[in-house]
Design a protein around this nucleic acid. Structure first.
Lengths: 414, 414
DNA sequence: GCCTTTTATCCGAGACACAAATTAAATCTC
DNA sequence: GAGATTTAATTTGTGTCTCGGATAAAAGGC
């Protein structure tokens, strides 16, 4: 928490007004006043300033007919054209780019099915640069009109530094992709874990609008974990999001079995090689097809395939149960494209969690599946950038930090 | 975050001033101004108000001789007599009560070696009431002069409700001890997990004054976990601290092995029954003696005893490694009286953590042992209450919460 | 005894929130 | 259809806060 002055006061209240409008859609000043518990005077002043900055606009009058008697309310909404932002998602086999407006509506998106894992960071940055330029131009915009870019990718990402510490799609470690792209495109660029984007999207637009605490577990080629705690994305003390795949599920000799080795699509396909009976090398080349085949067989009644999926579900369930014990989130959202939506997997996960939760926590969390959709994360990436534009003053500053004391008495020693 | 008004602004800045004085000891106004980055004018105004309320007092002039030239600084410090608070710790075999002043100095303490586990809540409340009355009176105070009481106990505690959800020392669940004692003694009483008190004490006075993130693992008859994250005590979404003993270390059939079954003194003694060769019932009656015996034998070279301790250390290490993966704290403090200080145990814990941490997190945490001391938690309990008196305005309010919208247009439906 | 230096306070300006009064824009009533 | 009624939004005035600059206070230096 920064030291408080009138400016901070205004920033806080302005954020509350923006947040209320964003969350409740077109809203009148009286409603904002009630929602935020600020006086009508203050709301009026703040909305006047926001209107002046063209961050919000009045809804066309007559659009909402009001059954009441007195002067009709003027509904205010976010100005869609107040800003434009770009979201980018890097997946092992695909780059997706989306341009959204200030309301996080997707104006234009672009998918490039390219296998980028194990490419060099420079090549990937090239591809992303091209994709962004193309998508922005297709949306009828200029790069100069873009306020920010957010790139989501699997792995461990240090958002504050704009660096990807490690990722399945980079050979290198500590890739400073944020600064790189910002330089290439001339637009502020942030980096974040793809799961965090999904978590924010669910919080702003999705199944968790009403919740300030939930988990997002992304089950895909690799595993991801996003935690919303007290309305904020949870990061460890080093600023890194926790990596679900690094969580340990059991001992093995002197070492340990990590979830990544037993709960991801990659690991399941590795074990399924023999079962699918094509020598296994295919899984390296076309993992989606192999996964689809595995799911199909499992659904068709192949017990061994079903068991493989169930084993993965149990492993993930074990980790999720531990996470619920820590965070006690009312909801756990499992997202993903293939395995995550399989009955075998998800049922095993559900059953394991139910069986393992301590009695005191039974029934605190319900586990829902959210099939992966490009639009979800894209809006999340937009939200991540827009949140900076709105400027929530406390989350950026962190807890009270006192400056180093500089002794002013000459020759004094402490 | 509450809606910001001048009052909140003042509250925040007043807290910063108090916090600076608390942390840096006797401090002059200029120093506070530098530390908090507030203007000298503001600091002067706030300190004047605090002096007026007698929350702080000027240090006796002449006490600190200043080598400088100009007008000497007036050092300000917390007024020890501004308030008195009481800390209570409930352990299975002991009730401890301590009275402290506004600086969290212990004025008087009282230990009552009584086996209270498995007593009824009413009996325990009686004992606590007596102990508090006695200790306050011994300190030369009246109950009316006590601003608050904080009770620490093992188990799962819902601080906000003043209810102990479950604890090894209560047969009952959901014991509303806070309200009960507040009623009996006429003093506001809060409840918290004993580990949280230790964590706060370490943060305010102990080995983690400079850290905003660390874990405290309490290894005792039962296991406890306190997490300081971003300078605040971490609690789950339900307001409950996570229970270390509920964390799972491995599967066992359809069920699971929880840390409480393998990593606590109780569990180790359970397994050691045969080894110690006295029929085992002694452990029920005199666990401390049995534990001491076990430690002694292990130290003396009894491999089987040492292995038992090492196994517990490994189990706790497994859980700690997972916690480090999530929270990435720079320091982990292991506290406890008996087993926690044993070399066999702590070395196994250290080795396990080192072996299991993912490469990206190696060396982020150093693990230190803090032998249990009554004074630590007592100051923690004091700090917990004093923090409320200081009034950090943001931690109490939490993130932006919008009130329910009440439609004011009659007959309107949304 | 006067000057210099550092600390603390006083004074006026600027920003803000808020309550009360006022204006605005509709519907209702007769 | 003109005035009363009702609800929304703005204007006005007051008090609180922080802060920069001027001023007073309290020492040592000379």
């Amino acid at each position: 928490m920064k030291t408080a002055d009138p400016e901070l006061m205004r920033a806080i209240n302005r954020f509350h007004v923006m947040d209320a409008i964003r969350r409740f859609g077109p809203t009148s000043r009286v409603e904002i006043s009630q929602l935020t518990e600020m006086s009508p005077t203050t709301v009026s002043a703040i909305t006047a300033a926001l209107l002046d900055d063209r961050l919000i606009i009045p809804l066309q009058v007559g659009a909402v007919r009001d059954a009441g008697r007195g002067r009709p309310r003027v509904m205010l909404k976010l100005n869609p054209d107040a800003a434009h932002v770009v979201g980018v998602k890097l997946a092992p086999d695909q780059i997706t780019v989306a341009v959204t407006n200030f309301c996080a509506d997707i104006l234009r998106s672009l998918s490039m099915p390219i296998r980028i894992d194990r490419q060099t960071a420079a090549v990937i940055a090239d591809l992303v640069e091209d994709g962004v330029r193309r998508c922005v131009s297709d949306a009828g915009l200029e790069l100069a009109g873009v306020s920010g870019i957010c790139v989501g990718l699997p792995g461990v990402v240090e958002r504050s530094a704009g660096v990807c510490r490690q990722s399945p799609i980079f050979r290198e470690r500590d890739v400073p992709l944020g600064a790189d792209l910002a330089f290439r495109l001339g637009v502020p660029t942030s980096l974040d874990s793809d799961v965090n984007l999904v978590a924010l999207a669910e919080h702003w637009f999705g199944q968790a609008r009403d919740l300030n605490d939930f988990l997002v577990v992304n089950v895909d080629r690799s595993l991801g974990l996003g935690i919303l705690h007290n309305g904020e994305l949870f990061r460890g003390a080093n600023g890194l999001g926790p990596d679900l795949g690094d969580l340990m599920v059991r001992r093995r000799g002197d070492g340990v079995v990590r979830l990544a080795e037993v709960g991801s699509e990659t690991s399941v396909l590795g074990e399924a090689e023999a079962l699918l009976g094509d020598g296994g090398q295919r899984a390296e080349v076309r993992p989606e097809r192999e996964m689809a085949l595995l799911l199909q067989r499992a659904q068709g009644g192949d017990a061994r395939c079903a068991d493989l999926l169930a084993a993965a579900g149990e492993a993930v369930g074990f980790a999720v149960a531990n996470l619920i014990t820590l965070f006690a989130p009312p909801r756990v959202i499992v997202s993903g494209r293939a395995m995550a939506t399989s009955e075998c997997f998800i049922e095993a996960l559900r059953k394991t969690v139910a069986a393992l939760l301590p009695a005191s926590l039974a029934d605190v969390s319900d586990i829902v599946v959210r099939e992966f959709s490009e639009s979800v994360w894209a809006r999340g990436a937009a939200a991540m950038t827009l949140r900076e534009l709105y400027g929530a003053p406390w989350s950026t500053t962190g807890p009270a930090q006192l400056r180093e004391l500089q002794t002013s008495h000459a020759g004094e020693s402490s």
